[in-house]
Nucleic acid binder design. Structure first.
Length: 332
DNA sequence: CATCAGGGCCCTG
DNA sequence: CAGGGCCCTGAT
């Protein structure tokens, strides 16, 4: 089974606590848990708490976010678990990175004031007031996720990431949890493609190798990419082997926080969007271009963020419902 | 059992 | 620019 492999955990014994103050309104659970993400061994959630491993500046850390405030008066306490003492500067840089990745300083008021009264969106904003997209990982790590998502079921994605964690990641123990930390790119750099294929990740092995090389050779740099305009980001991402329009769409939104652009809708998403926006039958989805035009004219500069509210809402509903209609449109 | 299609992308013609 | 092939898995 998945946990069959033996790995001695690294005990993260030291705890530093940091107070975070997200911009209000802030919805803790909708920001720190995304029911549309497949479960993976680097994080866990329960209402009011998220556990997450992170590999930052070469250190494997365990993060525990706890909700200590309210939607109107947000406050999050962040525990950083480590093997060694962390200095102030390190913690400051880490905090900034987390604030960036999780959009903790994002100002939702512009979006709410411009689109909050659109009939379809209004109830969702009310329901998920203060929710923002959040990414908990580096660009490299997110790319690995997009690779294991491609052309397979959720179950298979889960397995592939798990076996990669078990083979190349680090098992960390902190706050009573055992979770895997991602590997540095150079860990995989010298691994033969066949070794990766032996993990039953199929042809994705080639993409993982090539993407890893791009990072080790410094052909890509996450931090400089952040400063570029969307189209330059898109071009740079598409140069990566195994990364196409579907993956780029996710990355531009989740990793680079582009709230506007939504250019690619894959067939399975098309069915879900059709149902969400036009209440069509699953077998009679609207053409992608119709959907895109509708989004363009209704949610223009917040197309992606708007769609995200629809999306998260339906996945939260599914999480609480048994046999939700969505089940038939997702390959579990 | 065997066959097939799939939470994309690359490569070829 | 359309369509076949790719690894593996689970559905039929």
């Amino acid at each position: 089974m998945l946990s069959g492999r033996k790995m001695k955990p690294i005990d993260l014994k030291l705890e530093h606590t940091i107070d975070l103050t997200p911009t209000a309104p802030f919805n803790f659970d909708a920001t720190f848990h995304k029911p549309d993400h497949f479960p993976s061994g680097d994080n866990d959630w329960q209402p009011g708490v998220r556990w997450q491993t992170v590999l930052w500046e070469g250190k494997h850390l365990g993060l525990v976010f706890k909700n200590r405030g309210s939607i109107k008066q947000p406050k999050v306490s962040l525990s950083v678990w480590s093997t060694e003492e962390l200095n102030e500067c390190f913690l400051e840089r880490l905090t900034q990175e987390i604030e960036y990745r999780c959009n903790l300083k994002f100002d939702l008021s512009d979006f709410y004031s411009k689109y909050g009264d659109k009939s379809k969106l209004a109830p969702l904003i009310k329901r998920w007031y203060g929710m923002r997209p959040a990414n908990y990982r580096s660009l490299y790590e997110y790319l690995i996720i997009t690779i294991v998502l491609q052309n397979c079921s959720v179950q298979r994605s889960v397995k592939m990431l798990q076996i990669l964690f078990e083979t190349y990641g680090k098992l960390l123990s902190f706050d009573g949890k055992f979770q895997y930390g991602f590997w540095e790119p150079n860990v995989i750099y010298d691994v033969k493609e066949q070794k990766l294929r032996d993990l039953k990740i199929g042809y994705r092995a080639k993409a993982i190798k090539k993407i890893t090389s791009s990072f080790v050779n410094k052909d890509v740099d996450e931090f400089s990419l952040r400063c570029l305009h969307t189209e330059k980001q898109r071009i740079a991402l598409l140069k990566l082997y195994g990364i196409g329009p579907a993956s780029v769409g996710y990355i531009l939104f989740d990793v680079f926080h582009n709230m506007k652009d939504l250019e690619h809708i894959s067939p399975w998403e098309q069915k879900i969007y059709s149902k969400l926006l036009f209440d069509t039958k699953p077998d009679g989805p609207l053409p992608v271009n119709n959907i895109l035009q509708y989004l363009e004219s209704n949610y223009n500069e917040y197309k992606m963020l708007s769609m995200y509210y629809f999306w998260e809402n339906i996945f939260w509903k599914r999480k609480n419902d048994q046999s939700h209609w969505l089940d038939n449109l997702i390959k579990l």
